[in-house]
Design a binder for these strands. Structure first.
Length: 568
DNA sequence: TTTAGGG
DNA sequence: CCCTAAA
């Protein structure tokens, strides 16, 4: 099946929703935020997981030992960001390719360097092109790169705040000066084993017709691994190809692609009709042929993603883990949220103006976010207690990986580059946004800003009626691999020291607390004592249950005789 | 903050 | 998972 829709939108930058990550203790004081955070994390996991899958499939091959080493994985975490800016008759193109981390954290420069060291195979390429002149050069990570960026940015004057964090720190680029909205093209390609219905625009009528969503069946071939003709092609990989190939491998059954397009003009809304009005020459105005508001998703934000696998895990197990997580998440579907100045627009029936979106609304004040949806139920807003079948559970003592934004090459037809852009901050005004850390940990899948909303409706983000009350955390069943890790840790450390067990077996999983771990052990012991038929959920291998009982008995005995040293 | 248990 | 008393 092929669905194609386009979404045009224009704005200058995007922002991350004001959802600072909350620690468990923080949650007590700010439950609402924590809740949102949890949801976003799920959404984020989804995207990043998918991305990671693609890359892993393409670039990672089992080492001779049949195991994955960090070195093998790291290089697969690639990200590409491409920026274009028109300045007079010149067009500045900046492309950045780096390790995953640079996409996830706000401090790209640091992480890029880190990634460089870690991976050793990362590259940056900056291209400067203007009429009759073209130059490209490779930069090393760090100062040199930043320096290069500075020069270019200065030469061209203004630059978008988009992707700034991805290239280097804000200060380095002095991006605050944004008189001209830079043109940024970000495309993302990912495979999602999810039916189109999950992301149909029914929930987002305003942009329905504009979203460039390509959903097709696997076998749909991947004829076009054509790289963009531009010189920028070389610096990054051809994820689109990867994606397709992957699909054909039978993993994902659908190919979901969001292809943003560059649009130089901006649009204004007519106060009366709520429809866009063309205001040529005016900054912040869009050009529209008809009376429709056109939106374009500029980029997705993928704050953070962790894929953990045991060091002894094989590529195959990694893939299965990823698949498992994706499937879970997709099962819940996705919802779209609209953010204005960091606040969610909950009333679907308001017009742009009514929600506060007006001509002078800063484009970057608008944002879209994809959130996991609890059920198939449409975006009707209800609280989100609904259990989310998502979760990115992984196997044991894992190694931790970052997300995986992928650089995608243009579709054969279009000569656009696709990328997944992740960035933090950038919003000059979003209230209550302790960028940095908070964002860093807010695992959200955020689609960037856009102008949307027709007279129709906006997508309800989520109605948290109890924007204050404590919300129950989403249910995150322990996967078999997690159980395995837990058992192993308890066998080694014993019971009663859950803090240690937690850090040993789930150090990477921020959503697992020592209390959770302790509770899990409790239920495991219970499960091991009852008949398999009586237990629910994913069945735990008998072998593990046996080990649970043995370990439980062993440590219970140990506790009985205090004189004995636990370490034997 | 952690543990240990009941809910 | 949550909530809490205890330590």
């Amino acid at each position: 099946m092929v669905l194609q829709k386009r979404l045009y939108y224009g704005f200058d930058g995007y922002q991350v929703p004001p959802i600072p990550r909350a620690t468990r203790s923080d949650r007590r004081r700010c439950s609402f935020r924590k809740k949102v955070d949890d949801n976003q994390m799920c959404a984020f996991d989804l995207l990043a997981t998918v991305a990671g899958k693609l890359l892993l499939e393409e670039e990672s091959s089992p080492s001779s030992s049949g195991r994955l080493s960090e070195k093998e994985l790291s290089p697969t975490l690639q990200v590409s960001i491409k920026k274009e800016q028109q300045h007079g008759d010149k067009i500045l193109k900046v492309e950045h390719c780096g390790g995953l981390e640079s996409m996830i954290t706000s401090d790209c420069s640091v992480n890029v360097a880190k990634s460089k060291i870690q991976v050793g195979s990362f590259e940056n390429k900056v291209e400067l092109a203007s009429s009759g002149y073209q130059e490209s050069f490779d930069c090393t990570v760090g100062d040199k790169f930043k320096k290069q960026m500075n020069i270019e940015l200065q030469n061209t004057g203004n630059i978008s705040n988009i992707a700034k964090a991805d290239i280097c720190s804000l200060d380095d680029l002095t991006l605050r000066d944004r008189k001209h909205p830079a043109l940024v093209s970000v495309e993302s390609s990912m495979t999602l084993p999810l039916g189109t219905d999950h992301f149909t625009c029914g929930s987002f009528p305003a942009i329905r017709e504009d979203v460039n969503l390509v959903i097709r069946d696997d076998d749909e071939n991947s004829s076009g691994c054509t790289h963009p003709s531009s010189t920028t092609t070389k610096s990054f990989r051809a994820p689109s190809c990867v994606g397709n190939r992957r699909l054909r491998n039978g993993f994902a059954s659908k190919y979901w692609k969001v292809t943003p397009k560059l649009k130089r003009e901006e649009k204004h809304f007519n106060a009366a009709s709520g429809k866009p009005v063309c205001l040529p020459g005016q900054y912040g105005t869009f050009q529209s042929e008809d009376s429709h508001v056109k939106l374009r998703i500029k980029s997705f934000k993928v704050p953070e993603l962790f894929i953990e696998i045991p060091e002894s895990a094989t590529v195959g197990s990694l893939k299965r883990t990823v698949m498992e997580a994706v499937t879970k998440i997709l099962g819940g579907g996705l919802r779209v949220g609209v953010l204005l100045q960091g606040k969610k627009l909950r009333d679907d029936n308001k017009t742009p103006l009514q929600t506060g979106i007006s001509d002078d609304t800063k484009l970057d004040a608008l944002g879209f976010s994809l959130e996991p949806s609890s059920s198939l139920a449409p975006p009707p807003l209800h609280h989100e207690d609904s259990p989310f079948p998502l979760t990115c559970d992984s196997p044991q003592p894992l190694t931790r990986y970052s997300p995986t934004p992928i650089a995608v090459l243009d579709p054969p037809s279009l000569n656009l580059g696709s990328f997944v852009e992740s960035d933090h901050d950038s919003a000059p005004s979003p209230p209550d946004m302790s960028i940095d850390k908070n964002l860093k940990d807010s695992r959200a899948l955020v689609v960037v800003p856009a102008m949307n909303v027709g007279a129709s409706a906006v997508v309800p983000a989520r109605k948290s009626k109890r924007s204050e009350a404590a919300q129950r955390r989403i249910h995150r069943p322990f996967s078999v691999s997690e159980v395995e890790a837990l058992v192993q840790a308890v066998e080694k450390l014993g019971t009663g020291i859950w803090r240690d067990v937690k850090s040993r077996a789930f150090d990477y999983a921020k959503h697992r607390t020592y209390v959770d771990v302790k509770d899990k052990w409790k239920t495991l012991v219970h499960t091991a004592r009852i008949s398999p038929q009586q237990s629910r959920g994913e069945p735990v291998p008998q072998e593990l249950l046996d080990r649970v009982l043995n370990a439980h008995a062993h440590w219970a005995k140990q506790q009985a005789k205090p004189e004995t040293c636990r370490f034997r």
